[in-house]
Each structure stands twice: as structure tokens, then as C-alpha cells.
Simulated scan of single mutants.
Amino acid sequence: MRSYDFAPLYRATVGFDRIADLMDRVLSADVAQPAYPPYNIEKTDENAYRISIAVAGFAADELSVEVKDGALTVAARKAAEESPRTYLHRGIATRAFERRFALADHVRVSGATHADGMLHIDLVREVPEALKPRRIEIAKGDTVEAKALETIEA
């Protein structure tokens, strides 16, 4: 397993701690990620995303979606069966799972729906007004100097 030292990045930058932590977490995570349950991540609009997770066999009340500390956690626990069943073939897995997704800054969960064996989680990126690009008016040089002189004389 490879190991990278991000100490030089911390020494030379300010405010990029989260990116370095994310890279460190991705690179240090074990390679064998669980494949269950399968999921899709799609971009539905310029600032909207949807995570679709195949949750066949789970009822809506057996699923939980939680956002905490910039991470989206989806978990499922199957309720105990009241009567034992005898399966000749069991191809639909209903084992418990927990899957985590790291959310970027300003991304929030706008809703979740459960239909036809799929759990759809809608996300939206809301960039604050202070971070949006804005046009700066360019003043003439003499106007700025005149205002500065007025301020000094007053």
C-alpha cells in the first residue's frame, strides 16, 4: 500500500486542509470497496445531483438517510422475519448496509424518495452570494484621488 506525506502541502497552503484530508482519506482507504448495494451518481442540472441506490427488498421505514459533518450516510436494516422461509434460490440480497458519501462545501440534501426498489437522494449545490462572481466597477483615477484628498482634509 502506498503512503503519501501531505505535510509540505500543509506548510505551503492556507485553507486547503479539507482537500488534503480528502486526498489522504481516499488514498489510505482500503482498495476493496463494498459493491453492495449498487448505486448511480448523476448530474441532473448545473447545480443539482442525484444519487440512486438499488434497495430492492427494503421498505422505506427500514432505510435511513443522514447528513452529518459533511458526509451523507445511507443505511438499511431489515426487520426480522416473523415466519421462517425456505428458499430454493435467494438472489435478492437484503443484508444490512451502510454507505457513506463525502459532500462538497455548499452541497445539501434537498430530498429523498423511495419508489420501485430504488432510493433517490437529490442534492443541490447552493453557492452563497459572497462566493458568486461579481462585476467590479472601475473608477477613473482622478475620482479615487479626489475622494482620498477629501477624506484627508476632513
Rank of each mutant, 00 (worst) to 15 (best):
G91N: 06
D122G: 05
L131Q: 12
L103G: 02
L88T: 04
A79E: 09
E81Y: 10
T143R: 02
D105H: 15
E66P: 00
G141P: 02
D142K: 09
E129Y: 10
D122K: 07
D105A: 13
D105F: 15
T143I: 13
E66F: 05
E145W: 01
H89I: 07
V74L: 07
F101D: 01
A76G: 07
D122A: 03
I136N: 06
A80Q: 05
H114K: 06
E129I: 01
L131R: 10
L119S: 05
K140G: 00
A112D: 06
A139L: 11
G91F: 13
L119P: 02
L103N: 07
P128N: 15
K68V: 08
D105P: 09
K140H: 02
A76E: 08
T73S: 08
H106R: 10
V124N: 07
E62S: 08
M118T: 14
A93D: 14
F101L: 08
G91H: 01
D69K: 09
I92A: 08
H89N: 11
A93S: 13
A115T: 12
I136T: 03
E137L: 09
I136C: 04
K68R: 14
V74W: 04
A112F: 10
D69N: 14
P84E: 07
A76N: 04
K132G: 13
D122R: 03
L119A: 02
D105M: 09
I92T: 10
T143G: 03
G111E: 12
G70A: 10
I136D: 06
H106K: 11
E137R: 06
I138K: 03
V107H: 10
A75K: 02
V65W: 06
G117T: 04
I138V: 09
H89W: 06
S110G: 03
A76I: 01
E98V: 12
V107Q: 04
A146Y: 05
E66L: 13
T73R: 05
T143C: 07
I138F: 08
V65K: 03
H120W: 00
S64A: 07
T113M: 02
D142W: 13
L131T: 08
K68L: 06
A75S: 14
E126C: 05
V107R: 08
I136V: 14
G91K: 11
A79K: 14
V127D: 15
V124H: 01
V74Q: 02
V124T: 10
P128G: 12
Y87K: 00
V127S: 10
R125T: 07
D105R: 15
V127T: 15
H106M: 05
L123Y: 07
V124C: 01
R134V: 08
E81G: 15
E137S: 04
V127F: 11
A96T: 02
E62F: 01
R125V: 04
F97Y: 05
A115V: 02
G91Q: 06
H89M: 13
G70M: 05
A115N: 05
H89L: 15
V74N: 05
D116A: 15
F101T: 02
T86R: 03
E98Q: 12
L119C: 01
D116K: 15
E126N: 15
A96N: 06
I92R: 08
